[in-house]
């Protein structure tokens, strides 16, 4: 994986992983075109700042910047209504159900979640950060992140059950 954008010390910053940055934008927006727009805008701005020698010193600033751009990009979109979503316990057969999903479907599902749950799910399933880094990036407390992830799993399971109903054994 390429890790570019050097920190002030000239050392490439850890985890400023560009393919994962694109995937993050995609999960946040659920739309390839919008994700590319945000991804390119983030990198263009970063390159300009780098040329001026104004790269931020904080860690994961590319992801932080991209997150705010994603939130900004969806500000004018229709927001999901705060309704009670179905929740099912995570099932043992969930991996096979997920295996039948298209990445696009997952991105659409995650991008439809209200923020900060959307950010929490996108950052967590990138499998790029540990939980403390996610807390920092999404500006959450541990119990909030825990609740968002736990609810997210159960809601995704309910959605999977609705999309791929299990045939009852006779």
């Amino acid at each position: 994986m390429r890790e570019v954008f050097r920190g002030p010390s000239g050392v490439p910053e850890r985890k400023q992983n560009l393919p994962q940055l694109y995937r993050f934008c995609f999960l946040m927006l659920g739309d390839s075109r919008k994700a590319q727009d945000v991804f390119h805008a983030t990198l263009r701005e970063a390159a300009q700042r780098a040329a001026r020698g104004e790269l931020p010193t904080e860690s994961f600033w590319l992801f932080r910047d991209a997150r705010w751009r994603c939130l900004e990009a969806t500000k004018s979109d229709l927001q999901p209504e705060p309704l009670e979503m179905d929740e099912h316990e995570v099932a043992a057969e969930a991996p096979s159900q997920i295996g039948r999903l298209d990445p696009m479907h997952l991105a659409i599902w995650i991008s439809a979640a209200p923020d900060p749950q959307r950010s929490a799910l996108a950052l967590f399933y990138l499998d790029e950060f540990d939980y403390r880094e996610i807390l920092d990036l999404a500006e959450l407390k541990l119990n909030e992140l825990s609740r968002f992830l736990s609810n997210g799993r159960r809601q995704l399971q309910a959605w999977l059950d609705a999309k791929f109903p299990q045939t009852a054994d006779v």
């Binding site: 390429r2 570019v4 954008f5 050097r6 490439p12 560009l18 393919p19 694109y22 995937r23 995609f26 999960l27 390839s32 590319q36 991804f39 390119h40 990198l43 970063a46 390159a47 780098a50 040329a51 790269l55 995570v90 969930a94 991996p95 997920i98 295996g99 999903l101 990445p103 997952l106 991105a107 967590f124 399933y125 990138l126 499998d127 799993r153 995704l156 399971q157």
Partner: peptide, 28 residues
């Protein structure tokens, strides 16, 4: 469950235009 979702996330294709940013030379 989490591993299966993470595997699916890794399958998200990177469009060619975006992949241009991952060139061998550093952007900065």
């Amino acid at each position: 469950f989490d591993s299966a979702v993470a595997r699916l996330v890794r399958l998200i294709p990177i469009p060619a235009e975006s992949a241009e940013w991952f060139s061998e030379k550093d952007l900065v």
